[in-house]
């Protein structure tokens, strides 16, 4: 349990710092009109492959984004609710990317 808690706080801390630190550009994107179970309420939403500054690609949703998002746009990582899990509705948090604020 202690280890689990430590791990979680590390993730939260990393994500907390990330909105300023983790940036990249949109490598590709798609607007998902037919979502899987658990994501119906969010559809349509943008899913993207984001290329981070070190070159690594990462799969994530875009958030706070207009319909005209394009390949090459600069984005940054933020912590968001991804979905709810199971009958008790446990919230699953994770990362999404939003346009870099000017």
């Amino acid at each position: 349990m202690n280890d689990g808690g430590k791990e979680l706080s590390a993730v939260v801390n990393r994500a907390g710092q990330s909105s300023a630190a983790v940036r990249g550009t949109i490598y590709s994107l798609t607007r998902v009109l037919e979502p899987p179970a658990g994501f119906e309420a969010q559809a349509p939403y943008f899913l993207a492959l984001v290329q981070l500054e070190d070159g690594q690609l990462i799969t994530a949703q875009l958030t706070d984004v207009d319909a005209d998002a394009e390949i090459g746009d600069r984005v940054e990582m933020v912590t968001r609710k991804l979905t709810t899990d199971g009958r008790r509705g446990m919230i699953v948090y994770g990362y999404k990317f939003r346009p870099v604020l000017k």
Binding site: S28, E34, P35, P36, A37, G38, L47, I58, T59, A60
Partner: peptide, 29 residues
């Protein structure tokens, strides 16, 4: 949506499916 979620066992559960990906969305990318 239930079939799409069931089909998602063919993707990576921790890095793709959890973010609302589907096989079709990955093909779209």
């Amino acid at each position: 949506s239930a079939r799409l979620a069931a089909r998602n066992v063919s993707l990576d559960a921790d890095y793709e499916s959890v973010n609302g990906a589907t096989l079709t969305a990955m093909a779209g990318l």
